[in-house]
Design a protein around this nucleic acid. Structure first.
Length: 594
DNA sequence: ATTGGAAGGACCC
DNA sequence: TGCCAGGGTCCTTCCCGA
């Protein structure tokens, strides 16, 4: 492994730095999806050369150095731990292993399906001639590319100009989301017939529990999935790959094995699963990214099987969450239940955009206004207001900063979004003189719905959900102050005119009235139509609670609807993950049918 | 000690 | 030539005030 020969190297350290940096520049999607048969060394050098000297490169280099330092500290800590008596930690780990082992559930059959090069596949349907040439979807950055392009080393997440260096004849198409979502809907239509409670993990991925389907149709999982894939292919013309296993974590890994247009089954057998995990590189597991992979590698954990022999260190080295997550990886455990879209609760809504370096107060304000207008559109579409507002900026150096406020009222209108985010921007301009940005974004969190509950839908469909904390401490403290709570320490924040506060108070009063109104409607309905008394009419003063109860009632979901972080529910082997987005099962970029 | 907000990051697609 | 997205979720750390 020699580093770039053009680079000056004084010692091995430098060469290591280059190696790790190069690896990092390869992008996040490397070992995830099959890029075998590609000369990675050559690709790596081309990417390195193409990137060299750019601000992006400098930033990556910096991050790489920081990570290297972090890893050094981890290793020092490990060295200290090795001199200690860790029998307690070992015992703790062993107990956890035993506990998990007891709850291992091999009765379920879970499938992960994944459309092959989805966006590219959809584009090929419109333009079949594209099948013959390497092409990608996405202009500045490739979101995906067809398998022809992958042979050149092109990957999703790669900069367009870099991809062109790897493959000069590469064709780049613009994104057309409407087309993809329409096609995705077709696919889901079919999937739902195999499991109506399927979970869509992203626009082109889903988890199904086909236990019931196989049972009632007296069909083997392999056959059922063959049939599903065939049906999808015939009706939608896109091919999908699938993984079949005892839980979501394993199924996800398996769906990558025979991609594209293939499937793989890992038997519901403890021995088979342990063997499978034993040699599986950590990076293959959903939740282990480039950073965690490097950290684990440094302490000696390359495969999931390696986790066991280091079990006594993991908690102290990486934290409790990561420890649990890793042990579950070692054992090959994961969720067996799925969360259908109707039960999914959105946590935030945001928009951001990248542009040519921009500085100057007026220009930045303009951009902020545009951003606010974009966000309003999304908020209106989704019918939400946000109780907190987050401003995100990326400096021209690629450094990312966020600032947030809690406005005196929940917001969604562009005017408000702008008004309450402007002070944050202004403060940043003071903090960083000559502030130059390449990206700006706004995001609303702590959402409260504006949807009026439809009393009829109420009993059958838990569509309407209010924020669980509709009258949380945040808004109370605001009320008492009448001005936004500013983030961290020194607040140069101007005081908003008192009329704002009055207006906000009025709004809230109005909302309360509406909620009460809704509540009484519901109670009425309840007594009229719900003689069985399933719903506790001992109601909380917010419809959100009620509706959520109904949601639980309506489906026997294991209600991960719960808010709050770190909820460790025994009996469910999820919530593992750790300090770096190690959520067991990312629910990102879901398609919401609002 | 705990809690909760804010900021920063890792990760996923 | 012009040099790396945008939509999310969750976890950790820091800090503050009861």
């Amino acid at each position: 492994m020699t580093a770039n020969p053009n680079a000056l190297e004084h010692d091995g350290q430098d060469s290591n730095l280059h190696d790790t940096l190069k690896y990092s520049l390869l992008g996040p999607s490397l070992t995830k999806s099959g890029q075998d048969s590609v000369d990675q060394k050559k690709v790596s050098d081309i990417i390195y050369d193409a990137s060299k000297g750019s601000k992006f490169f400098a930033h990556e280099e910096n991050r790489d150095k920081l990570l290297t330092v972090k890893i050094e500290r981890i290793l020092e800590k490990k060295a200290r731990l090795e001199k200690l008596n860790l029998t307690r930690d070992q015992k703790k780990a062993d107990e956890y292993v035993a506990e998990l082992e007891l709850s291992r559930d091999l009765t379920q059959t879970v499938v992960h399906v994944d459309c092959d090069a989805f966006y590219a596949a959809v584009e090929e349907l419109d333009r079949p001639e594209l099948k013959l040439v390497p092409f990608a979807v996405g202009k500045g950055v490739l979101t995906t590319c067809n398998y022809h392009a992958r042979k050149f080393g092109c990957r999703s997440g790669m900069a367009g100009f870099v991809a062109k260096k790897l493959c000069p004849q590469l064709i780049q198409l613009p994104l057309n989301f409407e087309k993809y979502t329409a096609k995705a809907r077709e696919v889901r239509e079919i999937i739902s017939q195999y499991d109506p409670r399927f979970e869509s993990a992203s626009i082109d991925e889903a988890y199904l529990n086909i236990t019931a389907y196989c049972e009632s149709n007296s069909i083997r999982p392999e056959e059922a999935v063959e049939q599903l894939r065939k049906e999808v292919h015939e009706k939608t013309k896109v091919t999908i790959s699938a993984g079949i296993a005892a839980n979501t974590k394993l199924a996800k890994i398996c769906s990558n094995i025979n991609k594209p247009n293939g499937q793989y089954r890992l038997q519901n057998d403890r021995g088979a699963i342990m063997t499978f995990m034993d040699t599986l590189p950590t990076r293959k597991v959903n939740g282990v990214g480039r950073v965690f992979e490097r950290e684990l590698d440094a302490v000696g954990v390359k495969t999931c099987g390696d986790i066991y022999q280091y079990r006594q260190y993991l908690s102290k080295l990486f934290g409790e969450k990561a420890f649990k997550f890793l042990i579950q990886c070692y054992l090959g455990l994961g969720r067996t239940d799925t969360q259908p879209a109707e039960e999914y609760e959105r946590k935030s809504i945001g928009t951001e955009s990248t542009f040519a370096d921009l500085s100057g107060h007026n220009g930045l304000c303009d951009k902020l206004e545009k951003t606010a207008q974009e966000l309003e559109k999304d908020m209106v579409k989704a019918q939400f207001k946000g109780k907190t507002l987050v401003l995100k900026v990326k400096l021209h150096t690629y450094e990312v900063l966020t600032r947030q406020v809690i406005p005196p009222k929940a917001v969604y209108l562009a005017g408000d979004l702008y008004k309450y985010s402007l002070p944050m921007l202004s403060k940043l301009e003071q903090e960083f003189k000559g502030l130059t940005l390449r990206l700006m974004g706004l995001r609303c969190t702590h959402l409260v719905t504006m949807k009026k509950p439809d009393p009829l839908a109420f009993f059958g469909y838990p569509k309407v959900r209010n924020s669980p904390a509709s009258s949380g401490p945040a808004s109370e403290s605001n009320e008492s102050k009448g001005e936004p709570v500013e983030t961290g320490g020194s607040s140069s924040s101007g005081v908003w005119p008192s009329e704002d506060f009055e207006e906000a108070a009025k709004d809230e009063y109005q909302e309360e009235l509406e909620e009460l109104e809704i509540l009484s409607q519901l109670e009425e309905l309840e007594s009229q139509q719900f003689n069985e008394g399933k719903l506790d009419s001992e109601t909380k003063p917010e419809s959100g609670g009620l509706v959520k109860e109904a949601a639980r009632e309506a489906s026997s979901a294991s209600a991960s609807v719960e808010k709050g972080k770190g909820q460790l529910k025994r009996g469910r082997h999820d919530s593992g993950k750790s300090r770096s987005g190690l959520k067991d099962d990312p629910k990102q970029t879901r398609l919401s049918f609002n």
